[in-house]
């Protein structure tokens, strides 16, 4: 972390920020927009996929919009929509969404300092910390003249908007499509295959990935399609902890990781 960043998170930086907040908000709003353009493309596409998926399940238009706005965690939202059409399993849903999103715990750990001293903006920044928003806020420094807090705030806000807009748009598109076409819901499978492969290409050791698949398949066979979620999650966490001596030095690939990170 550079000196200037650290300065900003100290109390002195805080009072400075207060003094110049008004003028900097507009400049930060403008500066943040171009940075989010790649995310706009990705979120509109995935958001539309999500809206189409919700429609294919038979959910009405406000579900994708409300879920996109309030949950705001791509992959977990697909799973949630899937659960809404099944039986009432609150504990399974809670555990599963928590574990799917557990990676955010580590984003938070990386942002402890960056979000320090930002007042109410900090709450929204924490709420809106998706994979992509985290990557940008973590990696990109605000340009000269822009306020760090406002810059991150607007990046988060734009991305949030793309996602909700995509979900709403997707439902409308789904409304025009379905009825005639089967199999649209495969977008969710394709999404997770892509996320899985992206992680696979980044990792040097594939034991955790293989364990995830193998243990879940075993739990589906043992406990059935309705009840495998909690046993799988528990088995995965347990076995990863047991294998810690073996997997301790598991890391990302030395060379490829940086580039892969940037591409996302």
């Amino acid at each position: 972390m550079s000196e200037t960043e650290r300065d900003n998170s100290l109390p002195s930086g805080r009072s400075q920020e207060k003094a110049s907040q008004g003028g900097n908000a507009g400049r930060s709003a403008l500066a943040a927009f171009p940075v989010t353009l790649p995310v706009m493309a990705g979120y509109l596409f995935l958001g539309i996929s999500y809206g189409i998926y919700c429609h294919s399940l038979g959910l009405s238009w406000f579900y994708p919009i409300v879920i996109a706005a309030c949950v705001y965690a791509g992959s977990a939202e697909f799973v949630l929509a899937n659960f809404l059409m099944g039986g009432f399993h609150p504990l399974s849903v809670f555990i599963m969404i928590f574990v799917i999103n557990a990676r955010h715990l580590f984003y938070g750990l990386s942002m402890l300092e960056k979000f320090a001293g930002l007042g109410w903006k900090r709450l929204y920044l924490i709420f809106g910390m998706t994979d992509e928003t985290f990557s940008i806020n973590y990696a990109i420094e605000p340009p000269r003249g822009a306020d760090r807090g406002w810059f991150m705030f607007f990046i988060t806000l734009y991305n949030h908007f793309y996602w909700v807009a995509g979900a709403g748009l997707g439902w409308v598109i789904g409304d025009m499509l379905t009825g005639q076409i089967k199999g649209v819901s495969f977008v969710m499978t394709a999404l997770f295959v892509v996320i899985f492969m992206e992680q696979w290409l980044k990792d040097a050791n594939h034991i955790p990935a293989c364990l995830g698949i193998a243990l879940t398949v075993i739990c589906v066979l043992l406990f059935g399609r309705e009840n495998f979620v909690i046993p799988s999650m528990a088995a995965i966490c347990l076995l990863l902890l047991v294998l810690r001596p073996v997997l301790r030095n598991t890391g990302k690939k030395a060379g490829g990781s940086k580039r892969a990170e940037e591409r996302r």
Partner: peptide, 18 residues
């Protein structure tokens, strides 16, 4: 440690879930 190894396993779980 879990932060390094859990994501890959969870994504594998999700593929099977789908």
């Amino acid at each position: 440690y879990l932060g390094r190894v859990l994501p890959a396993a969870v994504f594998g779980f999700l593929v099977v879930f789908c």
